[in-house]
Each structure stands twice: as C-alpha cells, then as structure tokens.
Amino acid sequence: MADNGYEGAHGAEGGGLEFHPMDQFIVKPLFGGDAIHWYTPTNVTLWLFVAILAVTALMVLATSKRAVVPGRGQSIAEMAYGFVYKMVEDVTGKDGIVYFPYIMTLFMFILAANFLGLLPMAFTTTSHIAVTAVMGFGVFFAVTILGFVKNGASFLSLFWVEAAPLPLRPILALIELISYFVRPVSHSIRLAGNMMAGHAVLKVFAGFAQVAAIAPIAILGVVAIYGLELLVAFIQAYVFTILTCVYLKDALHPHH
C-alpha cells in the first residue's frame, strides 16, 4: 500500500477497496502552488486560525456581557477557567499560579484544535508531530530552565532519590535521567499519535463502507469511533495539560 500513491479519490475507482487514511494529514498550500515555504499559508494556517477564532469566541465574545448570572457560553468559559485553574493549583501548588496563563493557552489551543479536527473535512493540526513537538519541547525546555533558575544546582536533586537505599541511588538516578529526557518525546507523540490514530481509524472504517454488505456495520463503527474520539479529544488535552503541570511542579519543587 505504501506505493499506491494518493491520486485516487476516496472510492472504489480502482476496482478493489482503496484506503487513504493518511490523506487527511497532507499539508497543502491554500492558494495553489507546490512549494511550501515557511511563510506559505497552508491548511495548517487556516485551521490554526480557526482555532484562534474558536478560543476567542468562547473566552472573549461569550463573556462580553460579564453577567453575574452566566449564560450558556459564559458558563462554559468559566468552567474551562475554573477547571484549569484548579488543576494548576492542585498539582503545582500556590506558587504555580503565576504560570496559569501559559498552561491555559496550551489547554485551550489543544482542546480547540482537537475538537475542530473532528469536523468533517477538517484538518487536525494537533495530529502533526511538528506541532505537538514544538509544544512538548517548549514545555520541556521552559520547565528545565525554570528549574535551574529557581533552584540552581539543587534542581539536580530531582534525579537523586533520597528515599531509596544508597546503593540503588545511582541506578535510579540513571533511570530518572532517561525518563526525564523521554518526557518531551512521549509528551508530544502521545498527543499526535492519539489524534492521528483516531482519525486514521475513522477513515479506515469509512473505507469499509465502500462495500455494500458491511456498510451498515462500518457506518455504526464510524459513529462509535467518533464518539470515542470526542472523549479522546478532551482527555488528551487534559492529559497534556496535567502532565505540563506535573513537570512544572518538578521544576518548582524538585525535592521528592
């Protein structure tokens, strides 16, 4: 299947079943042309912009009335605010509240991008390693630098587990060090992988609908997977955010 190319549309044109589950992730320039320079407006740009609009609509327009008794939109905005605020407070403690706007930015962006990606014909920006890796490594470097700035060299005590018996400590330190450097990788690949997997599975099920005999089952499958994907879209945004909070807590309080 690797050399099938992507010329065919979604349909049984070539006779047999044709699956193009990865087609939806192709980055295309918006206004024609082939070359993708760093400044070219592409479908990524479009859907990032839609995500900004969605966040603005929810967090700014819906709260513009500043009602003491909130309406629907304002309730959701307040709920999102309270949800992330409580998460930051619970996980990182009081001194982590300063970083709340950054974490809120990450959460709202990932949530909006995940949900917008579930619209038919939409492009899921968070399914691209490039996008999630920027956020994952951004969090990693920010947290590491913050840890050294706040704690100096004692930040390294994060890797020296005082609770363990002395002979085990060097081994544990090595494990902790490796797990620390795997963090950004797993952090970003988890999000991208989840989104990519879900959308690819949706496309595969949709592809089975080309065969009339199993089309009803395939369509039921699409519905079920879509429901699961709605859940996953939220949970992955939540998990990305809460792991960011956990890493931030490690930076602020490295002592176990």
């Binding site: 980055v27 760093w38 990524v44 990032l48 912009f49 967090m59 700014v60 490039a130």
Partner: peptide, 25 residues
C-alpha cells in the same frame, strides 16, 4: 513542511496567549 507548521503554530500560540492573558482571563 516543518518550518511552515512551526512558524504558524508559534504565531497562533502567541496570539492565543495574548488574547487570553490580556482580555479573557
């Protein structure tokens, strides 16, 4: 496509950060 995506993503994140931290939050 990475430079393109990274460029626009950073732009979008900065935009959302300013919208949130200056107005919404």
């Amino acid at each position: 496509t990475f430079p393109n995506q990274i460029f626009w993503l950073v732009l979008a994140l900065i935009a959302i950060y300013f919208i949130l931290s200056r107005i919404a939050l």
